[in-house]
Design a binder for these strands. Structure first.
Lengths: 140, 140
DNA sequence: GTAGATTTGCAACATTGTTGCAATATGTTA
DNA sequence: TAACATATTGCAACAATGTTGCAAATCTAC
């Protein structure tokens, strides 16, 4: 794992530092998306709040993680899969937020149907945010 | 316009007060969505910040306005059209945010195609957030 | 190992959102 | 319309979240 994160950072021309490695590992371990607050909680003993902000900013800029829009104020971040790590700004994303457990799933393999826009509108990015009950919670 | 907002408030069992009327009129005058900050700026001389927060909360609860998810931290609010003012929680919405002028369009008349979810997922709400260049900006 | 560049942590600050409570405004009833 | 009960507002104080500048520490390349 260590060398994995190491590679990712180097590939993106970033210095390999403790906080970057740790935060990247957090994302790799988590099965869903993480909010800034989650990251703070899971690593706040170690790193300054400011460092986390800046690390997330850099990761987003480099396309290592992406943001997920939500209806409330919270911003979620999730790891970009290998094949979408470049040119993320023209990408389409679908996410599912469970109303029960609050986990966010990245629906990587979902095809987003084309949506017809009114004439004159040029769309470069589409985000689909679905909410409801996830697989785990509906089985309980 | 005054009697219009009056009706809307009464229909939703809300007292007709200065701030509610004013904020509702702001939404009716604006052609796009408004962020909390916008509302503060356009009416901050008149109403307390807290009042604006609470007014927006009440409006959302009553289904008078709805929130629009965005990729950055900002929460946008937009007026619900008449026919979507009830049962808003099971609704589908599409919005377009222009990268140039930053205006947000509610695409009321757009059909959102069904998206196939993995087995076990039950979706109750779908938000589509598109960004790009709007009609006005692409004509410049 | 050392020099130069990058990153971190701290401090201070700005913005955004929340809560309790007293004062005020609203709706209702007589 | 006066008066009561209820709902709303504004204030103050606070909490959470995000930003900036700068010196110290760390990293990379040589």
């Amino acid at each position: 794992m260590k060398s994995d994160t190491n590679d990712i950072l180097k590939k993106n021309q970033l210095s390999v530092t403790g906080s970057r490695t740790a935060i990247l590992e957090l994302f790799q371990k988590s099965n869903g998306a993480l909010a800034h607050a989650d990251i703070e909680k899971k690593s706040s003993e170690q790193f300054d709040r400011v460092t986390i902000y800046r690390t997330l900013q850099v990761f987003v800029e480099k396309g290592i993680i992406h943001t997920i829009p939500t209806t409330d104020n919270s911003v979620l971040y999730a790891l970009c899969k290998d094949n979408c790590s470049q040119g993320h700004h023209n990408d389409n994303h679908a996410h599912f937020i469970c109303d029960v457990c609050d986990l966010t799933y990245c629906l990587e393999h979902i095809a987003i149907p084309a949506i017809n826009l009114p004439a004159g509108f040029k769309q470069t990015r589409t985000d689909v945010v679905m909410s409801g009950i996830c697989k785990n919670c509906s089985n309980k």
